[in-house]
Amino acid sequence: MDVRELMTGSSSPASPSRFLIVTVGERYLALNAESICGLMTLETIGNVGNPTVHDKVYRAINLADRLSVPNDQGGPNTRVVLLSERKVHGSIRVTTVQGLLEFPLSQVLPLPRQFRGPERHWYRGMILFSKSIVLVLNTTWVLDERMSGFEGNSG
């Protein structure tokens, strides 16, 4: 499924933006839909490390490892999210896909300033969701190759 084909609209702060809500390590995370190229099952991608779709290689990124959260992406609901931003491609495994949420960027809450570590680069903010919150992932950080094997292993 090409998610971008289903989505149109701008990303100005006032107008609604679409986020794909997923879970990883029992945390709700949001991905800006504009960066999403597709959703695949483990069966669809087969036994390859880096999924290739339409001749584009989506480098596998271990997001759970990068975030130091439990690696629970092997169940029947696991999906592979294909991401692309500024001609950089990557793919992440998520435990579940909750669905799409439309939300004005202006209503994304900032991460409290008491969070002072590198996580300030990991998230673009928070969204109130049901009785919980969703952390909006910074796709640029997710796709940054230099970060792989760096922060994720530093404790």
Binding site: Q114, F115, R116, G117, E119, E151
Partner: peptide, 25 residues
Amino acid sequence: SIPVAGRTPFVTAVVRQWQTVLPVF
């Protein structure tokens, strides 16, 4: 509390109180 993955010592979660989200020390 709602866990937030991060590296800040002892600040690893938030609590939600209605429309307010507070960091937890």
